[in-house]
Design a protein around this nucleic acid. Structure first.
Length: 818
RNA sequence: GCGGAUGUGCCGGAGCGGUCAAACGGGACAGACUCAAAAUCUGUUGGCUUAGUGCCUACAAAGGUUCGAAUCCUUUCAUCCGCACCA
């Protein structure tokens, strides 16, 4: 008989409405222990929600609902990271104003978000493109400026020709733009605004010990920050001292040449007249090489004609320009020790430069020896170990004021200028008399002008009226800064604004912020580890130093979710036409089914391929679930059922806590099957609803009500496992039953293969096991399709034509089939 | 090149020293119910064998530790992801 399909549409709409009306998910500061769950806020694109959104936000929602039931005061907000390029590009290609584009996109997003049933506190939502939000971006900028952490500098910067703006280091991925995988980043020399994130480099590194992130995430950040300890040594070149950085001062007697980066801004100060032509030719060649695909580029260089003096032994050594020295790390120049550094070795071989071994160990004929050892050929340092020599050499240099200990980072200062319109205007003016002048706090926000021309260059430069202003200091003529801030600035503190989103007087109330923050559980993609997650930590430390925050680390736990691909494993994308819209799936199966499906097939941190069958499977399960519980007749308490329930409560709780939703779902299904087989008492049934609730909140809320409960399931308490009720003996008994069913089916197959028919099974059990088999006889009948009869072996009236009861052993009853 | 992760049956994926030919889901196949089913239920799904048995081959490959390994160790191979000349 066909079961009725449950009316998910009606149920889901009903509960979404009720939750909203009653403000079930509103968060209020209080005495309860707080828990801050946060999904990274989305960029509201015109395309609407995609399956990846549906997936990642469901992960957060499940966790938030779970934590609420566990009794925490949960803050689970959402907003829109609405400043950014797509809105501006829509303005260029479709002639839509960025404000309108954003507004429409958000309306569309919201509709879909609500249909997904995510339990946000909607009263706290905001978008970053509101001047009431970006005003505080500007305020932070002014504070940075005040503290000397915002500065302008001319330097080589990354430029994306498609975005037509500069990019931060963190936005360059493998030499390409983060938004344009096919576009090589170009190097330009420009004067730009920077935030001095390197000021916090050390703390950004050490703070990683305080957070509970995956090993992988920590290592990635650690490498990105890239701390190395070494010595800065001054080499004299024609009377001027040039610093270089090395981690191997112990090899200083092995220096046989120097290499300056061919992109070094002061390179031509070193190039002699005689070598100028060669140098220029070389630079041209290098440039054409770097435009080719990446890959192993041979180390190449050219002699500059200049010589440096080795400060330790006064040797005169030639300076080369080379393509393998990074211009903006250290000082852009290195001392080359070919005997003990593989790169220098290769370079020396190519240009036939001397190789001088100064550390004993392996010989250095074929390749450099980069390990430690005992110093040789090193004057008074001979006989020292590498480690000792590092200290001694550095000390000797310090004594002569020609060197010092130094810590060097790979992390660069954060380039925040963008030459685009749809971002936060940087609140400074350029005054003819006073130079760069910050705009006073009380004049914030500096709003984006409505009328600009899109197309070429920075649109802000097209509104003269907006640009021309007065200097706040001297009231003379001044021009506004037309650069806007990187969108990553907007997202570096948004989590704090949620704690006090409507505050007009301050960036946020510090009491509120310090109550809710830091984020206890953050959820987002792996790609944010070396960008957003560094910036958000930097901002937190800065705001702490302003006295606004009482914690050091803004993100205590970080979960990186996987990506949902199309069914063939390709990326879902419009151009490939393989995008599945969450709304379509919801219309077909309901959001509870979709949510369940998204988390049931694989561990949430793994990439998965979309498979509609899984949604269908979830839908079938929920139908069964609904039909079972909507006509539920509670049974008596049964130790067996209670044991199962409690052991599953324990495990499922742990699984959800660890984001192993897939395992939790499997156990929920198993428990439900058990109920179908054995029945359940009322309490067990209610626990079942709670266990499924975080995943499928609508259907469980509905059933909760059907059970006669007046209050919301959303406000109940998460079940706790009663260890005393867990009895492992039951598990063993179940295994015995499974075994006998398997045996019966096996024999049935054999008999059928022989062409005979079977319809009945007789079971002969030891007297002390009789009850067990009797209690399972229904299940045996169901799963074998036979009518079953259970006898004790010693029963006088038993039907046993082949005397199978003789074979009986404990845990293994006799069976006869006919 | 360096660093990290992974490798299980037709597929997705559990298991992480014995109770494992391996949970759960999907697919496929068979049967039941039906006029009929894409619906529901039951079973089968490594091979051979068998009235509930026994054996063989199996958890990327090869070795090793152990009374015993999918699970621990070593090496190799493959895939994925980060950093890629950071001195």
């Amino acid at each position: 008989m066909a079961e009725k399909n449950y009316n998910f549409k009606e149920i889901e709409r009903k509960w979404q409405k009720k939750w909203e009306e009653k403000g079930i998910f509103r968060a209020k500061e209080g005495a309860k222990k707080k828990f801050y769950v946060l999904d990274m806020f989305p960029y509201p694109s015109g395309a609407g929600l995609h399956m990846g959104h549906a997936f990642v936000f469901s992960l957060g929602d499940i966790f938030a609902r779970f934590k609420r039931l566990q009794g925490f005061n949960v803050l689970y907000p959402i907003g829109y990271d609405s400043l950014g390029l797509p809105a501006e590009n829509a303005a260029i290609t479709a002639g839509i104003r960025p404000e309108d584009y954003t507004k429409n996109s958000i309306a569309n997003f919201m509709k879909q978000q609500k249909a997904m049933g995510w339990s946000y506190d909607w009263s706290r939502t905001f978008k970053t493109s509101d001047s009431s939000y970006y005003k505080w971006d500007q305020w932070i900028f002014l504070k940075m400026l005040e503290k000397g952490l915002a500065y302008r500098k001319k330097s080589s910067v990354n430029w994306c020709p498609k975005c037509r703006t500069v990019l931060a280091n963190e936005q360059v991925v493998g030499g390409k733009c983060w938004r344009h995988e096919d576009t090589n980043v170009e190097i330009k020399y420009l004067e730009q605004w920077f935030f001095k994130i390197t000021e916090y480099a050390d703390e950004l590194l050490s703070g990683l010990d305080k957070v509970y992130w995956s090993q992988r995430a920590k290592i990635m950040q650690k490498n990105w920050i890239g701390k190395s300890e070494g010595t800065e040594i001054l080499f004299e070149v024609e009377g001027e001292k040039w610093p270089i950085f090395t981690t191997r001062p112990d090899t200083i007697f092995g220096v046989t040449f120097m290499v300056i980066s061919c992109q070094h801004p002061r390179l031509f100060e070193l190039v002699k007249e005689k070598q100028k032509k060669d140098a220029e030719k070389f630079l041209k060649k290098i440039k054409s090489v770097s435009e080719k695909e990446m890959g192993e580029v041979e180390k190449e260089g050219v002699f500059t004609g200049s010589y440096a003096i080795n400060p330790i032994n006064k040797e005169k050594i030639p300076i080369y320009a080379g393509n393998f020295v990074v211009a903006d790390y250290g000082s852009g120049m290195v001392m080359a020790v070919p005997a003990h550094d593989q790169r220098d070795f290769e370079f020396a071989k190519k240009y036939k430069l001397p190789i001088k071994q100064v550390i004993s160990g392996e010989n250095v004929k074929e390749k450099a020896y980069a390990g430690a050892g005992i110093l040789i050929n090193s004057g008074e340092f001979n006989g020292l170990s590498s480690d000792e020599a590092k200290q001694h050499v550095t000390k000797a240099l310090e004594f002569k004021k020609l060197g010092r200990k130094k810590v060097q980072y790979k992390l660069r200062d954060w380039l925040i200028s963008r030459q685009r319109y749809w971002g936060t205007p940087i609140p400074v003016v350029y005054c003819e008399k006073c130079g760069i002048v910050p705009i006073p706090e009380k004049e914030l926000p500096i709003k984006l002008p409505e009328h600009v021309k899109f197309g070429k260059g920075n649109p802000l430069e097209t509104n003269e009226k907006w640009i021309n202003t007065k200097c706040p200091k001297c009231k003379g003529k001044a021009r506004r800064e037309t650069d806007t801030m990187d969108t990553f600035a907007n997202s570096s503190w948004y989590y704090l604004r949620y704690t006090d989103p409507k505050n007009k007087k301050r960036i946020f109330d510090t009491k509120k912020a310090n109550y809710w923050a830091p984020i206890d559980q953050y959820i987002g993609g792996p790609e944010h580890i070396t960008a957003h997650l560094i910036y958000i930590r930097f901002y937190a430390k800065f705001l702490r130093d302003l006295g606004l925050l009482k914690f050091d680390e803004p993100v205590l736990k970080y979960f990186t979710q996987g990506i949902v691909h199309a069914s063939n494993g390709e990326k879902m994308s419009k151009s490939k036409g393989n995008v599945i819209e969450p709304l379509d799936t919801i219309n077909k199966y309901g959001t509870d089914s979709l949510r369940l499906a998204l988390v049931s097939s694989a561990s949430p941190d793994k990439n998965t391929n979309w498979d509609e069958n899984i949604v269908l499977g979830s839908y079938k399960f929920l139908n069964n679930f609904y039909n079972y519980f909507s006509s539920f007749n509670p049974g008596k308490k049964d130790a067996r059922v209670e044991s199962k329930v409690n052991s599953f409560v324990r495990e499922i709780t742990e699984d959800i806590e660890n984001f192993q939703y897939n395992l939790a779902v499997i156990k929920i299904r198993q428990l439900f099957s058990f109920f179908q087989e054995k029945g359940a008492d009322k309490l067990s049934a209610e626990i079942m609803l709670k266990l499924l609730y975080p995943f499928c909140p609508h259907i469980t809320e509905e059933l909760w009500q059907k059970f006669g409960n007046k209050s919301f399931l959303s406000l109940q308490k998460w079940p706790e496992a009663d260890e005393k009720k867990i009895n492992e003996q039951f598990e063993k008994e179940e295994k015995v039953i499974d075994d006998i069913i398997n045996d019966i089916n096996n024999v049935v197959r054999i008999i059928k293969d022989k062409g005979k028919n079977v319809s009945k099974v007789y079971i002969y059990s030891l007297p002390n096991e009789l009850k067990l088999y009797e209690s399972y006889s229904d299940a045996i009948e169901k799963r074998t399709g036979l009518s079953a009869k259970v006898y004790a072996v010693n029963a006088k009236d038993k039907y046993d034509p082949e005397n199978k009861s003789k074979k009986v052993k404990p845990g293994k009853p006799g069976i006869y089939l006919e």
